[in-house]
Simulated scan of single mutants.
Amino acid sequence: MVVSPKIFFNDCYGKYAIAAVNVFTMEQVHGLFSAAQRANAPFIVQLTPVARSYAHAKMLSAMIDAAAKIYPKAVYAVHLDHGNEEHAFDAINSKKYQSVMIDASHDDFETNVVRTRTVVEKAHQANMVVEAELGVLAGVEDDIDIAEEHSCYTQPSEVAVFVNATKCDSLAVAVGTSHGAYKFSGGQGIQFHILKEIQDRLNGFPIVLHGGSAVNVGEIERINQAGGKLTEGAAGVSSEEIVKSIQYGICKINIATDTRLLWARVHREFFKQTPDLFDPILPGKEYMQEYEKFMLQKFELLGATGKAERIRTNNKIVMSR
């Protein structure tokens, strides 16, 4: 069942969070939908411009449509992650998305407002919701490459003005997380005093946490033992911080890096341990199983396990009226 993220956020605010997971491949789509159906957990499928360029937007949409038939109890939304106006308008016109993100966070405040409002007006006409971003996250992921010295926290004094001016439906904030595998190099973690002030000023408005992967140290060690050369000592968002952030209005938590690290670990170990094999199906099956196991744990951590049934039931009641 496809559901607007607005319904998700109204249900989860302050109680649990929605996993918003970036996908690129068939194996990831299978693993995500399978885990969500088993956990009875609502979720958001995220497609970035890079993913759309790699696999083609139509291919990704077709895989998601097929997964919805294979896993009929899945309750989900499809979201464009980190798009510009061109990406957002294409997603809106395709009618395959329930939500789009316009990322104008690198612009000055007024330009960000103008660009975001332009996308909001078109999206709302199509009954779609818009995620905006205020503040700049550091990190390297897809086509994002922001040095730490160029990142900046979201200013709480600006959030209410921004939301009122743009009419966006959710707001991604920069409060200490970062994109990619090399997070928290300074050990600062989430700045909860900033997040609390943002929540106070937005009064129940859904807040989004980008860079929500944990970056499991054990995964990095196993990748390197199997021939990888990833920098050790990186740290993502701890489970404790994730759980704590939910009470501060975080409704949507973006996950991408962890599933990439998982892919690297599974494939490196498989071909190291079985160098005589070359069939992509074999590690592919293992990756789907490991992906499903990872997402089951993530849904449990976010408190989302078992929450899809209520959303499914309530949505059917609304649609029948």
Rank of each mutant, 00 (worst) to 15 (best):
L47C: 07
A88Q: 05
A132I: 02
V113Y: 04
V159L: 01
Y54K: 10
D279G: 02
A20C: 14
R115E: 14
H30W: 00
I255G: 07
R52V: 10
A67H: 08
V120N: 03
G189R: 06
A77M: 10
Y97Q: 02
R115C: 09
N10P: 04
K244I: 14
I102G: 02
Y97N: 01
Y153A: 02
K167A: 15
M319I: 11
K122Q: 12
T118R: 15
P206W: 04
G306I: 00
A165R: 11
G14K: 14
A138K: 08
E27M: 04
R268W: 04
G306P: 07
I146R: 09
R312W: 13
K95P: 07
G204Q: 05
K229C: 09
L171D: 05
F9M: 07
G249H: 01
C251H: 05
D108H: 11
A308D: 03
A123R: 03
A172N: 07
Y97V: 05
H82S: 06
I311L: 05
F184I: 12
T166F: 15
G204K: 00
G135Q: 00
L282Y: 13
Q46C: 03
A235Y: 03
I250W: 06
A174H: 02
A57N: 10
Q225P: 05
T25F: 00
F205H: 01
A88N: 11
E148L: 09
K307I: 00
P275M: 01
A39L: 05
S213T: 15
E240Q: 12
A147Y: 15
L60N: 07
D169G: 12
D90Y: 05
K316H: 08
E300Y: 06
L195N: 08
D258Q: 05
V163Y: 13
S34Y: 06
D11S: 15
N112M: 09
N224P: 02
Y71G: 04
E269V: 03
T259P: 05
L202F: 06
I253K: 03
E241G: 10
I223G: 00
V29K: 06
P283R: 01
T177V: 11
E309N: 06
N112G: 13
Y76D: 09
K73W: 03
A55L: 12
A51L: 05
Y287T: 15
H82V: 04
S157G: 13
H124C: 08
Y287F: 15
F192K: 05
G306D: 00
Q37A: 04
G236I: 14
R310S: 11
S61E: 07
A20S: 14
V130F: 03
V217N: 13
I92V: 14
I144G: 15
I92W: 11
E133C: 01
A123D: 10
V217H: 13
A68S: 10
R117H: 14
A19Q: 05
T313R: 04
T118E: 15
E241Y: 10
V243L: 10
D279Q: 10
I255H: 06
G228W: 08
D65P: 01
I311A: 00
R310F: 04
A132S: 06
N112Y: 14
L202I: 02
V266Y: 01
V161Y: 15
Q37H: 02
G212H: 05
M63R: 00
A160Y: 13
A174T: 02
H30S: 07
G249L: 01
T166W: 15
Q46D: 09
S213G: 08
Q247P: 13
L301C: 11
